[in-house]
Design a protein around this nucleic acid. Structure first.
Length: 111
DNA sequence: ACAATGACTGAAT
DNA sequence: AATTCAGCCATTG
């Protein structure tokens, strides 16, 4: 079972600063799989059992919707964690998503 | 091997 | 801005 791709996804997600969010497609694109956004989400399915904690709650879809909250311990745990980091969540979607958006291909390049 | 599924995305309506 | 449609791709039945 190769999980190289998974590990890369987990690492990128762990690089997301608090109070910031990113999308599955962005991560996939950063890893060279811009058309495999679904695979990224599928990879996140096993993120909860990783020894190093993976802030999956900082990963949302391109619309800023908390589509993956249902896979958390509880459907509302994701929103609570985001709010705990200062991120406003309204009706399952991140407020000011565009401002809070974190793009590794940009943020990591600026040093 | 075929069909269905999904933590998605972008375009069209 | 919200909803729908079609495309994508690895996993699973």
């Amino acid at each position: 079972m190769e999980k190289d791709f998974f590990d890369q996804v987990y690492q990128v997600v762990r690089l997301i600063p608090e109070g910031r969010v990113t999308s599955y497609g962005t991560i996939g694109k950063y890893l060279g799989a811009p058309r495999s956004a679904r695979m990224v989400g599928w990879a996140m399915n096993g993120s909860h059992r990783q020894d190093p904690p993976v802030p999956a709650h900082r990963v949302v879809n391109s619309q800023g919707l908390l589509t993956g909250k249902i896979h958390f311990e509880t459907p509302f745990a994701m929103q609570e964690r985001l709010e705990a980091e200062g991120i406003e969540v309204k009706k399952d979607k991140v407020v000011n998503f565009r401002q809070l958006f974190w793009d590794p291909s940009i943020e990591l390049s600026l040093d």
